[in-house]
């Protein structure tokens, strides 16, 4: 068990850097393997070298950037929907109970 008060593994920038370095290495390795390993493909694009890595990278960058644009349009306050009465309350006239039923009597 880790002592919760001691700084964690990722609190040290050096550790983070080390992890990232390993990660970059993996990426590079995978890119190289694309050249090394022969693959049977269905779609012609798959044969392009670096197709998958590139698609993955660009796809995500575009995703995030688009999402940021979306935020400008769609983002509202956290309690945006909270300050409105329920549908039922909207139309409930609380004074209008059974009393009014008998109020106008047809003779």
């Amino acid at each position: 068990m880790m002592n919760s008060d001691s700084p964690g593994f990722f609190d040290k920038p050096a550790n983070v850097k080390r992890v990232l370095r390993v990660f970059y290495a993996c990426c590079a390795l995978l890119l190289i393997m694309d050249v090394v390993i022969h693959r049977h493909v269905v779609h012609p694009w798959e044969t392009l070298i670096g197709f998958y890595p590139l698609y993955g990278f660009l796809g995500c960058v575009v995703l995030v950037l688009l999402a940021k644009v979306m935020r400008k349009v769609l983002m509202r306050d956290e309690d945006f929907y909270d300050h409105q009465p329920r549908v039922v309350d909207l139309v409930t006239d609380k004074k209008d109970g059974a009393e009014s039923e008998a109020s106008d009597v047809d003779r």
Binding site: F23, C26, Y52, G56
Partner: peptide
């Protein structure tokens, strides 16, 4: 490849401060 490079994108965007921060919002 796909997964690692999309992770790479995450790391890159984060490092560059391009990643949208978590904001209390609707």
């Amino acid at each position: 490849q796909l997964l690692f490079f999309s992770a790479l994108a995450f790391v890159w965007l984060n490092q560059r401060g391009l990643y949208p921060p978590e904001l209390p919002s609707v």
